[in-house]
Amino acid sequence: MINIVKLNDSGQGNQNFENKKISSREIAELTGKTHDNVLKAIRAMEQAWIKVTGVKFNASE
C-alpha cells in the first residue's frame, strides 16, 4: 500500500492529518497504466515525497 497524506496549505503533511491509503494496483487500474510502470513512477518520486512530507511510502504485500 502507499500512504497518501493530506497536506495543509503550508505543505506540511506529518502532523494531525487524515491518512488515506491506495494500493499501487488500484492506481494502475484507475489510470490505465501497467502495475510495473506505476511502481517505477512511485520509486522515482519517493525521495521528493520524503523531502516534502517527512514520511516514507508504506510498502506492503
Rank of each mutant, 00 (worst) to 15 (best):
M1C: 07
N3T: 15
N3L: 01
I4L: 15
V5S: 11
V5E: 11
V5I: 05
V5A: 09
K6M: 00
K6E: 08
K6A: 08
K6G: 03
L7T: 13
L7V: 07
N8W: 00
D9I: 05
S10R: 02
Q12R: 09
Q12K: 14
Q12V: 06
G13D: 08
Q15I: 08
F17N: 14
F17R: 13
F17H: 09
N19Y: 13
N19W: 12
N19H: 12
N19S: 04
K20Q: 10
S23H: 14
S24P: 07
S24M: 05
R25N: 09
E26V: 03
E26I: 00
I27P: 06
I27Y: 11
A28R: 10
E29R: 15
E29H: 14
G32Y: 02
G32R: 04
G32Q: 02
T34Q: 11
H35Y: 14
H35A: 01
D36M: 11
D36A: 12
N37I: 01
N37D: 07
N37K: 13
N37L: 04
V38L: 02
L39C: 02
L39F: 08
L39W: 11
L39V: 10
A41V: 03
A41Y: 10
A41W: 15
R43L: 04
R43F: 02
A44G: 13
A44W: 03
A44K: 13
A44D: 15
E46C: 04
A48K: 09
A48W: 06
A48Y: 05
W49M: 07
W49P: 00
W49E: 01
W49S: 06
W49T: 12
W49H: 12
I50Y: 13
F57R: 15
N58I: 01
N58S: 11
A59R: 14
A59C: 08
S60G: 14
E61G: 10
